[in-house]
Nucleic acid binder design. Sequence first.
DNA 1: ATTACTATTTCCCGAGTAA
DNA 2: TTTACTCGGGAAATAGTAA
Lengths: 238, 238
Amino acid sequence: MRLLKGKENILIFLAENDGFAHEVRITTSMLAKQLGISQQTTSRLLIQLDKEGYITRRIARKETYVKLTEKGLNELIDLHVRLKSIFEHPVKITLEGKVFSGLGEGAYYISLPGYYNQIKEKLGFEPFLGTLNIRLSSNTAIEERMLLEKVADILIEGFKDEKRSYGGAKCIKAIFNDKDECAILFIERTHHDASVVEVVAPYNLREKYGLKDGDKVKLTVNLQPVLLFSNLLSASNV
Amino acid sequence: MRLLKGKENILIFLAENDGFAHEVRITTSMLAKQLGISQQTTSRLLIQLDKEGYITRRIARKETYVKLTEKGLNELIDLHVRLKSIFEHPVKITLEGKVFSGLGEGAYYISLPGYYNQIKEKLGFEPFLGTLNIRLSSNTAIEERMLLEKVADILIEGFKDEKRSYGGAKCIKAIFNDKDECAILFIERTHHDASVVEVVAPYNLREKYGLKDGDKVKLTVNLQPVLLFSNLLSASNV
DNA sequence: ATTACTATTTCCCGAGTAA
DNA sequence: TTTACTCGGGAAATAGTAA
């Protein structure tokens, strides 16, 4: 599909050639080639746009000069503003799920200086020595989890010691139950499936909220647009 | 005219509802109302967009969930980028005309402290005591002169003394013959018609270039987009 | 070369309606 | 209620061609 039809494409073409500031010289066949439509259609569209007040035409000798009217310019500006607001507003992602107990290995890993120091530095808080495991309740939440994993922007690097190597992780800052600063961890080599997220926070969330297994909790992430789109797209181009 | 047809409007609608991040629940009739088209057409368009790979649909029970695919998102981003580059690139306006001699009153006016000090302060240079009169050669140039007058952003205010009042002016910075800093003056109550511009500069341009009446000169203005569009549109809304 | 008319085809919209 | 089919009318695109 071409997203835009002939008329809109003509307006954009003119704008790209500063047709709001001065006349643009065109021929119908050259424009037709640009737009991928026939010369006849181009001619008709120009006549229509003129009648409808989006452009003015001046035909001198064999040369045609076209200019956007204010109405035409406004139409483009409206569209621009609409797209701008789409691509520049922050997006809020909410995950809901239930607390469950893991094997307790989260506490061990976080306590390792190789992880602890990175978390402290990159997340800006001293993590409680443990992670809260959350099983997502809905398919929607699972999909959003996958989105978040794609756009997670904080990288925790893996490392090695004498005995073994430790894998990397990505994470993204979130709000726990509309209140507490935390981060969602996406661990590279995890034994959990995509329905599980692990949360790290400056406090023991389990204690602070008196959480038992099965209790519902909520995670909210505010995605900044630039981050969101660059990561959404680059992730797939790799 | 509606700038966008059904399909494009659906993609934008989805994007506005964060349909790139998660599924959006819709009904064909609700969407139809939003877009100003029929339920049947909406249904057909959704089927087509799905087939063409711009959206995915999931129909559970009586509920339909729609999401933008990466292809769909890309389509919108492309358009956004295209419009952005239109509305954010600077526009260069060139005026060509011929020098002619006026009555010499430019020198008198500029020498008045009421004007001199404003010019010095707002244009950032000490003006030569005199203006260079230029008669524009083409209709194109005259139209661009009118555009420049609309978007001229530096206001020189009028004032009064015991004897009389002095009118205001607008001006805009320009480059003279691709080289010299200058400004084009748009004087409120001038006896010149729209084919004439007056130029003020830090030097005596006539002397510096050895200009005689009839010599061709060139003025170039670089319009910054924000300025350009806000002035183009607000001027007509007044 | 141009632009743009007329005739034909192709495509699209929406009413009616089924599932 | 939904979604989405068929089908008729009309709009839009192009071929052919005039000016």
